[in-house]
Design a protein around this nucleic acid. Sequence first.
DNA 1: AGACGTATCT
DNA 2: CAGATACGTC
Length: 363
Amino acid sequence: MVYSYKMQEIASTMGFTLSDFADTLEQERTKVLMFQRELPLCLQIVSHAIDCCRQQLSETTTENRQSECSDQTSSDMGLVLEEFIPITRNGVFDSEQPRHLHEAQTENNKVNDSDLNNLNLPPSDWLRSAQLWNQTSDPSTLSQNTRVVEVNRNGGAFQPFQKEKTCGGGGMMSSSSDPVPAAETGLGGSSRREEKEAQNQRKQRRCWSPELHRRFLHALQQLGGSHVATPKQIRELMKVDGLTNGEVKSHLQKYRLHTKCPTPTIHNNETVQPPQFLVVGGIWVPASDYATTSSRETVSAATANGIYAPAVATAAPQPLPSTVQKPKPRPMIPSSSSAAAAAAECNSSTTSSSTRTSVSPAS
DNA sequence: AGACGTATCT
DNA sequence: CAGATACGTC
């Protein structure tokens, strides 16, 4: 901030107008973001510089909300990743309120948030769009510790179901309260009549709240992708009680469906990108992802190009250990379709030169 | 029997 | 469209 009013000077020194400078800086920032781990300070500085530019710009340009300017990165470097995706050339980069992220869990939440910003995508892009997360645009809700969000959502946003908290998905325990006897577990103990009813009646729809989905993704990530993860594993990893295999399975099916490269639109020059999967520590990982993150502990998906799964940034409970190996190495690709189809878990990856780092710790 | 994947229904 | 359910396979 000290040098905020010098930005103009600096910019002109370098032959830029202030706004050009800001743009350029943003581009720089994008690059630096790639290495945010290695260059945290750099990133911070650039970000700050951008802020300053913007601020000044907005000041000089008289009115115009200076909304864009805020110290996003200042709050927590950890947030950086989260802003990575949302940065759009449109200039709308809506920064979020600084939040206190402490728990590893919260870190995962970034995923959501980042996607929340990402609303310009076509609706078809299931996961990479915010669709699943944007139910709440209310920052206040967001700022809360997401762990509970689900519950909140129920209360507020919608309550499609008559009874029980269904939609909250399983409240995930781990909080002080009780482990939540599973939303619908209730019918287990009641009278037979109810049981019958339950049979007749379709089971209550499980509402995959953002939080739930986040956990789903998280699990997925840990398991090495939607095509290798199995419902049961996912369910276990999610640790949401009340959640059934069937539900997960169903969700997974949808997920796969939607992530199965919904990119019929681009044929042209895009060339049919050879499905790129890497086997990182025994798990399949979309190549672009891996390349992007360069860090072995993170398999962050969702890069700028938008890959199916928002990364669960950095701190996965288990840093993707090579140990997470499938108990049952079943042939993941249903033979039917080319490996290509399946492999293209989706993405129209950037030209991110798939750095084929076939990390094989197992040497 | 149970876990999966896929198709189909709601 | 999203989730539930049916059904076949392993």
